[in-house]
């Protein structure tokens, strides 16, 4: 069984490359949805220890979507924005919306995270040549530590690390930037698949 920390710099570069392909797909979808040019890029893909991840942002107030990934690769996908950033994103879609409104604001966030996750996964799927099935998102607005531990609990039995994908959403017209985080947590068996496929790219 492979562990995430066996991934080295070149593996992470490849994963970042595929993440950026996914991000550009997501940017196109978001631009169409918001009817204005949106850029989305992935400045870094890195490994972080689960304990560090949870302890580091334990009390940060975030809006997060949790999406379960099934198929050849299984795992959890978190799309996470600080509450004010999530609200800025929602206001672009529904001017009166708010992440805490339990109605239109929340469903806007639901849609955005669905698109972001979907685009990212479809790029990763074609890069790794596997298929993914994603569950509908579930949303929680709370402390990051509390939210993350729920997804990480299962993973923590096997691995001490998680794959963290930083995402920057940039609104070209307004010139403001929203920083979000995508967190992809493949289960250990699935990690073997990712490993094998990424390694295969080098031997070709």
């Amino acid at each position: 069984m492979n562990h995430l920390n066996q991934l080295d710099g070149r593996h992470l570069d490849l994963l970042k490359e595929s993440a950026n392909i996914g991000a550009s797909h997501a940017a196109t979808s978001l631009s169409m949805m918001l009817k204005k040019p949106i850029d989305l890029c992935i400045p870094s893909v890195r490994l972080q220890s689960i304990a560090e991840l949870i302890n580091g942002k334990a009390e940060q107030q975030v809006a997060a979507s949790l999406i379960q990934v099934k198929g050849r690769i299984k795992g959890y996908f978190f799309v996470m924005f600080a509450i004010d950033q999530a609200n800025m994103l929602i206001e672009e879609l529904v001017p009166q919306g708010n992440i805490c409104d339990d109605g239109i604001g929340r469903s806007a966030f639901y849609e955005v995270s669905n698109i972001l996750c979907g685009s990212y996964l479809s790029a990763l799927a074609s890069f790794l040549n596997v298929t993914f099935i994603q569950s509908p998102p579930v949303i929680s607005v709370d402390m990051a530590g509390a939210i993350l531990s729920e997804g990480l609990v299962e993973l923590s039995l096997y691995d001490e690390f998680a794959l963290l994908i930083d995402a920057v959403v940039f609104d070209r017209q307004k010139g403001h930037q929203l920083n979000g985080e995508f967190l992809f947590l493949p289960l250990p068996d699935s990690l073997d698949v990712i490993f094998e496929r990424v390694e295969g790219k080098f031997s070709q």
Binding site: A51, I54, N55, A58, E59, D142, M143, A144, G145, A146, I147, L148, S149, E150, V153
Partner: peptide, 24 residues
């Protein structure tokens, strides 16, 4: 007290843990 940790204290110290979700 971080996740998965155990810590002890005697007054005037206090013990604090952040962001409990499904954890207890």
């Amino acid at each position: 007290v971080g996740i998965s940790e155990i810590k002890f204290a005697i007054h005037p110290e206090s013990l604090k843990t952040l962001g409990l979700g499904s954890c207890v």
